[in-house]
Design a protein around this nucleic acid. Sequence first.
DNA 1: ACCGTGACCCTTA
DNA 2: TTAAGGGCCACGG
Length: 127
Amino acid sequence: MKKEQKTKGSTSDRKRHDTISLYDAIYDVVRLVPRGRVTSYGAVAAAIGARSGARVVGYAMNLSHGARPKVPAHRVVNRIGMLTGKHHFSPPEQMQQLLEKEGIKVEADKVVDFDKLFWDPMEELVI
DNA sequence: ACCGTGACCCTTA
DNA sequence: TTAAGGGCCACGG
């Protein structure tokens, strides 16, 4: 895959993931999301310590289309519980369908009781 | 190597 | 209260 191109010697310890890619960490965290629960992009970003922000997480999700094992991108929503990425699914309704299949209710492209169903990866990482 | 784009989030008016 | 703008980083062309 990607090798470390150290053109600059002063990389310092900015990245904690030298051997693995940032995307791998993101996928791993997302895969940790239990069935029937949801999380947010910001939570994942914070979990991996990516100050890059939630934006990169969303971008990673976009590439997770062909990631193996399958990445439950449908369980990842924005911080208000809105299905911002639904439009990117094969059929846009697919995301909502998958959520409903897991017992999650969705209304107006928003996860019902998002606050209760919210799953913070950080809590699991602490253990 | 530079520029534009993006499944976001936070601060300020 | 709602609305708007800026900022952050990574990837593709």
